[in-house]
């Protein structure tokens, strides 16, 4: 396995820019980590996979509207979003 190429490829898939120094360092470290992970090859696991450690039942609820208790204009949300001067609108970040 060429770890430099793998790290390069994943940085694109996972949308993280990596510096040349990071690429070099991570590929070496990850090689060691994956080598250790291969330890699980040694155990025979002819069983079903477990996605959740404790079984949970899927429960359905009635589809009734509930009161949304968060007042979007309450002071705290100002920390995240700007409110226009007239206090009527919230200004989100520009995304286009």
């Amino acid at each position: 396995m060429n770890f430099d190429e793998i790290v390069e490829k994943i940085s694109k898939i996972a949308r993280i820019n990596l510096s040349e120094e990071e690429k070099k360092r991570f590929s070496k470290e990850i090689e060691n980590v994956l080598e250790a992970f291969s330890e699980i090859d040694k155990i025979n696991a002819n069983v079903e996979p477990t996605f959740h450690p404790v079984e949970s039942e899927y429960e359905l609820r009635e589809d009734v509207p509930e009161k949304f208790e968060i007042d979007p204009f309450e002071n705290i949300i100002k920390e995240n979003i700007e409110i226009t001067k007239d206090g009527k609108y919230m200004k989100g970040p520009k995304i286009l």
């Binding site: 940085s11 993280i16 980590v33 696991a45 996979p49």
Partner: peptide
């Protein structure tokens, strides 16, 4: 960053059986 890279790798086509799925089976054990 390291965990995102390794976590993405172990789920990738071609490696998923060896790592992720096997790990879930080991959890069963």
């Amino acid at each position: 960053k390291r965990r995102i890279i390794i976590g993405t790798f172990v789920r990738m086509a071609g490696y998923k059986d060896k790592y992720y799925e096997k790990a879930l089976k080991v959890r069963t054990l």
